Amino acid sequence: MYKLLLFVLLFLGTNLYSQQLFDEQSVADFQKDMNKHYADSTSSPLKKEDLKMFQSLDFFPASADFFVQATFIRTEKEKPFKMPTTTDRKPLYVKYGELHFTIKGIKCQLNVYQNIDLSKKPGYADYLFLPFTDLTSGVESYGGGRYIDLRMQESKQWTINFNMAYNPYCAYNESYSCPIPPQENDLKVEVKAGVKKFHD
């Protein structure tokens, strides 16, 4: 899972969060780089039979409706907890804060988390994890939810680009161990942005 994390964070660090306006080209570049990552046999999570047939991931069309400005609320004195995964592994996370925003007029809230072990590694002190499910989960997008990787942002207004939401590796190969989005991060809205489900 860390291979995809490294890739996504590298891209975000040089493109996404230096911008405060929606940029369709950045989304196109993200999709291109994702496809390159998945087509590469040395980094792809795809099973051998899927890799042989792979041409492209399926993405929702890029949309400014899912490039949102959220109000960030820092939550203090949170206790670390073991986040359930698709295996027996339970990595230690802590709730870092809350993000409040609207999508198409619907008020939404997501908790954003920090991985305790990862935060101790060089270059990851400001990394945050935003897992979520929404009304497309299990229909158009992966039923186990999707992830967005964030860097801590300086102001109280944070940018979330759902166009860069991606599937956990478990969506492609059940041999991986992937965090399960907490129930409180279930959005009661269709987030038609980012990567769609791989195949049934």
Rank of each mutant, 00 (worst) to 15 (best):
D126H: 06
P131I: 01
A193T: 03
H100F: 09
F81T: 06
K90C: 09
Y93S: 00
D149L: 14
I73V: 15
L51M: 09
D58G: 11
L46V: 02
Y172T: 04
F54A: 08
P122T: 04
D29N: 10
S175I: 09
S177Y: 11
Q55G: 06
L150P: 01
Y93K: 06
G13Y: 07
N163H: 04
Q19K: 11
E190W: 05
F54I: 03
D23F: 03
S63P: 01
G13C: 05
K188N: 12
A165L: 08
P45R: 11
Y142E: 00
H199Q: 15
P182D: 06
A39T: 04
L135E: 10
Y124F: 15
K82E: 14
I148H: 04
K121C: 04
D50V: 11
S44V: 10
K3T: 08
L150C: 01
F67A: 02
P181K: 05
L130Y: 03
G145E: 03
A64P: 04
P84K: 12
Y142F: 13
Y17P: 05
N115W: 07
D29Q: 15
Y96R: 06
L110R: 03
C178E: 02
E49P: 01
L6M: 13
K3M: 12
K192M: 11
E174R: 14
E24K: 15
L21M: 13
S155N: 15
G145S: 04
N115S: 14
H37R: 10
Q19E: 13
A64R: 07
K82G: 04
L21E: 14
S56A: 10
Q19M: 07
D200V: 10
K104P: 01
T71Q: 15
F81E: 07
M53L: 13
E190I: 06
I116G: 02
Q114E: 12
G105Q: 07
